[in-house]
Write a protein that binds this DNA or RNA. Structure first.
Lengths: 355, 355
DNA sequence: CTGTCTCGTGACAACGTTGTCAGGACGATT
DNA sequence: AATCGTCCTGACAACGTTGTCACGAGACAG
């Protein structure tokens, strides 16, 4: 207690402990009067330690608040798993990424694995920096919803055997597992649905043109329109919409002496919400049809309830987890591309007929 | 290429690399024809390496796909930071936890720190196990939205100086930083608001009674009702509601020959949503007032738009980040208890008068 | 030419842990 | 009594890295 290092150490207050070094196996060994290796045996529950010694060690460990250092342990161990995986998603606060993270977390926890989560916000540099950080932390696996469109920068890691699963977007330039949604199909179905309800002037709201899913969704729309003989119309095809507010403004513009579409397909859930806000304020929410891509909480409570193309997030997350941990467990079969079919959820807003 | 270990190693396929060991500084040193220590100097950008040697080392490193091992580095370094913090939240897929995580992540990223995220789902054992795991991983700090009601189990860690910030719920039995919302105040304001609009039969929906915030919210309601001279009524005070569905069922029961409250205060956002579903299906959504605790996306788009008590999540997250990283940076001042005042956001559902 | 100083580089120990192996105590077998 | 095997325990090296120190080469002053 009077040692120089402890002189001013208070107990139980936040900053008090910094000077107090953590107890190591060596300290526990000294207190228990055994060798370091014996402590290691006890801590790891190995056989070949007498009950008396085991008890002495455990007592010493708890008296010193000993906590195992997994980093040192992994460093020494033969085939070191860090028990950590990384998840780089678009934005952990949006409901799609958040649900995905949650499902992955559940799978990981069942395997004693922790999840490092981060948001990319479609920033390419951030993705590359974060991947580097995760590799430096020696994560056992990586789940990636990429912001980049080319993934050669990952080649070395993949070659080194880093289990990697792409989600929502396909890998380009490297070969890796992926779990994606058939965006072309989903948006084609949505637009076909609108056409079937009599629409010919259908607006399309889309995210950043650099994002794969946005491109695919556009393609799906075009296919459906081509099949219906509806010519492409630049005035109602708005791209590079990043926010709900941008979508709202775009939709407002449609009806200010503009093309006045009778239906709107929104290529992302918050764009759909922006569209609803605009229509609501224009008094058009019961006169213009809306279908959004990606379901969201409360879509059924809006008025009219929103018809959406649903990506089954639970299924996506489960597939991602399954693939990732199979690789971590040593599965070396060729990369798999799991494609999940989205479904149209009919709720009302997509069934409004043109007036 | 003909070495025995590489004979069957394919390139670029997921499982190909497992047998290929990662290059270490030793390997880089050998290839560059320098000592290991020189590689360390180059990798860490230390001074005292000639340009020629530096270039040779960098070239060798990239040829071997060398990646720095932060765990070994931290182990050796004097004052080791792992550059990782842990966030144990209620459920990373609910919008409150997710937003909090997101804000924390932004603060952390600015400090080159990664975030380990996990959900507790109000399970006490899981909290304890996860904290142990985070400590074993030597996180630099911990953000905790506890499922437990007593926190003595953290005493040793706090004593050892683990920077810890409680969020949404206060620490009990130990002294630590916290950022909470004044739940009593918020719910008192909500009920006062209902009383002011003429309500005397006000139902209260609450989460698990073991959760601190639920207790506080109940207390706030009671204070407001006492002040208004409204006697407590067990029939309209429903506790231990875990899900939106449970809330929906409870509200349905109110109007099946039950007490028929003229207003409902829901102590959590998804309970409020359950209430809305029930009222909607009973055709009462414009006749019974509803106020929810905690704002949520689209609350303004419901019909009627929902009046809520808003906890400013951005502010909470920012405070948590600020406190946590101040501690990590060495701040040893006494623990702080930051309390944030929630505000009533008036939107319509809370201003319906009794019929 | 010698001595000193600086600069670039390397040898070695150490961080906290685990795998390998060897040794001592003890009871059982010859 | 000598030999063997079993059980428990410890000494030591190693994982990949960095801090410390020492050494050799060249520059420069005396």
């Amino acid at each position: 207690m009077s040692g120089p290092g402890h002189a001013h150490a208070r107990i139980g207050t936040p900053g008090a402990g910094r000077p107090v070094a953590r107890a190591t196996m060596k300290d526990v060994a000294a207190l228990a009067g055994v060798s370091l290796k014996t402590v290691s045996r006890v801590v790891n529950g190995e056989a070949g330690v007498s009950a008396a010694v085991r008890e002495r060690v455990e007592h010493a460990a708890s008296r010193l608040d000993y906590s195992h250092n997994v980093h040192a342990s992994n460093l020494r161990r033969a085939s070191s798993r860090t028990g950590t995986v990384g998840a780089l998603l678009q934005d952990v606060s949006n409901s799609f990424s958040a649900s995905l993270l949650r499902t992955l977390e559940d799978v990981a926890r069942a395997r004693q694995t922790a999840v490092l989560a981060a948001s990319l916000d479609e920033e390419e540099d951030r993705e590359i920096a974060l991947v580097r950080g995760l590799v430096a932390r020696r994560v056992d696996g990586l789940v990636l919803m990429p912001a980049t469109s080319r993934h050669e920068y990952l080649a070395a890691e993949l070659r080194a055997g880093l289990p990697t699963v792409f989600v929502d977007r396909l890998p380009h330039g490297v070969d890796a597992d992926s779990v994606t949604v058939d965006n072309v199909l989903g948006s084609r179905h949505a637009v076909e649905h609108l056409v079937r309800h009599g629409h010919r002037r259908i607006a399309v709201l889309l995210d950043l043109g650099t994002i794969q899913t946005a491109q695919d969704r556009l393609r799906g729309c075009r296919e459906a329109m081509d099949a219906a003989g509806i010519p492409a119309d630049d005035r109602v095809e708005v791209r590079d919409l990043r926010t709900s507010d941008a979508a709202e403004a775009a939709v407002r513009a449609f009806y200010r002496g503009g093309p006045s579409p009778t239906a709107i397909f929104a290529g992302r859930n918050d764009l759909a919400i922006g569209a609803v806000r605009a229509l609501r304020s224009l008094g058009l929410s019961h006169r213009v049809a809306v279908i959004g891509f990606d379901d969201f909480p409360l879509a059924d409570l809006l008025d009219p309830a929103m018809t959406v193309v649903r990506q089954n997030v639970g299924q996506i997350g489960a597939e991602v987890g399954r693939l990732l941990f199979a690789r971590i467990a040593g599965d070396t079969s060729p990369p798999r591309r799991v494609v999940i079919e989205p479904t149209l959820v009919v709720r009302g807003s997509g069934e409004i007929r043109p007036s």
